[in-house]
């Protein structure tokens, strides 16, 4: 089992390297189409043409594009993604500071999404069996039509304005200073024992995570329901019924296990949606994550930063797909045979 996981990881990594290089190239070329000169912002108003030329040479912008790409790639391999034009800081440290917030947000969102969609999928299946599914179906379709950033605005309206019980700006309250051990607020505050600050961090996380989870759940519910409908026709369900197991037990103990496999694959494929959603959701909630950073970079035409974050998103997507593959192999007994 361990060997199988290892084999998958190695195979995935080998395939990931050309993918990352090609994707970086695509982003690089697209960004060089930029109609405005990103360097204009770096120069003081009194700069001469000579200064501009010197700066271009210093940043390597005077080289031909293929050469620029190779230089960027070589530096990237050595862990240097250049400096942000607008923040005047290394791209890697900006990303490093923002990434834990985004990962924390995505994981909490995923947990909430699963807490909603596993019972939701089971309910949709039960309603399907009782031929009462039109209502359930319409609800899922309606939920599917609401993107995460609209959920964010709706949740702010409900829990921030009409019934102001939850904070909707920032990652923690203004008076709280994060210890910065792992970068994950929930973990750091827990191990330093600051429980009040911990609950502040949690309450700040709730609305953004819920926005992402609510837009993610309908997709999971659909796949889960579909998987359960498929499982219902399998012989083992009939056998379990003959053995006298209750319908509830058959559903939760036996069918769900089998319906989970396609669901896991789907979650891996759709994780990109979660990240896409995080862009706007983080911006709306003033949450200091990578999505927010990306929006600022895009607004400020900050090429090195855009390029760096794009690379990071690709790495994250590839990592998630690897994890999903491994999970799938571990959970699917049919793949375990030597």
């Amino acid at each position: 089992m361990f060997q199988l996981s290892l084999a998958i990881i190695v195979r995935r990594l080998a395939a990931a390297i050309p993918t990352l290089v090609l994707l970086s190239l695509v982003v690089f070329v697209v960004l060089r189409l930029l109609p405005v000169d990103p360097l204009a912002a770096l120069l003081p108003p009194s700069a001469t043409a000579e200064d501009a030329r010197a700066l271009r040479a210093q940043l390597g912008f005077d080289q031909p594009i293929p050469m620029q790409f190779l230089i960027w790639l070589w530096e990237a391999v050595r862990g240097n993604l250049g400096n942000s034009i607008n923040f005047h800081q290394p791209v890697t440290s900006l990303i490093g500071a923002a990434m834990p917030a985004t990962i924390e947000l995505a994981l909490v969102a995923l947990a909430i999404a699963l807490a909603i969609s596993v019972p939701g999928g089971a309910l949709a299946f039960v309603l399907h069996q009782r031929a009462r599914e039109t209502a359930a179906d319409l609800t899922v379709t309606l939920l599917q039509s609401i993107p995460s950033f609209l959920w964010a605005l709706l949740l702010i309206i409900v829990f921030g304005v009409l019934w102001p019980v939850l904070p909707f700006s920032g990652r923690v309250g203004q008076e709280v200073v994060l210890p910065g051990i792992t970068g994950f607020a929930l973990i750091d505050l827990l191990i330093t024992g600051r429980l009040r600050d911990w609950s502040s961090a949690l309450s700040h996380l709730l609305l953004p995570a819920l926005s992402l989870a609510l837009s993610f759940s309908p997709m999971v519910i659909r796949v889960l329901r579909s998987g359960l409908i498929d499982a219902a026709g399998e012989p083992y369900v009939e056998v379990a019924r003959l053995r006298g197991l209750s319908e509830t037990r058959i559903l939760w103990r036996h069918m769900l296990k089998n319906a989970v496999l396609p669901t896991i694959t789907m979650i891996g494929v759709q994780f990109g949606f979660l990240f896409s959603g995080a862009l706007l959701v983080e911006m709306i909630f003033g949450f200091p994550g990578v999505g927010n950073l990306m929006v600022q970079a895009v607004k400020g035409n900050d090429m090195p930063l855009i390029q760096g974050i794009a690379l990071l998103f690709c790495v994250l997507m590839l990592a998630i797909n690897t994890v999903v593959d491994v999970l799938y192999a571990l959970l699917n007994p049919r793949l375990r045979a030597p």
Binding site: T19, L22, L23, V26, V27, V30, L31, R32, L33, L34, P35, V269, G272, F273, F275, S276, G277, L279, L280, M294, V298, N301, I306, I309, A310, F313, C314, M317, L318, N321
Partner: peptide, 21 residues
């Protein structure tokens, strides 16, 4: 297709928009 799908979709459209205006 696989290459394209390793990008979160909105991130890719954002980058394209930065490029083309």
């Amino acid at each position: 297709v696989d290459l394209w799908m390793s990008f979160p979709p909105v991130v890719l459209s954002l980058i394209l928009l930065v490029g083309v205006g």
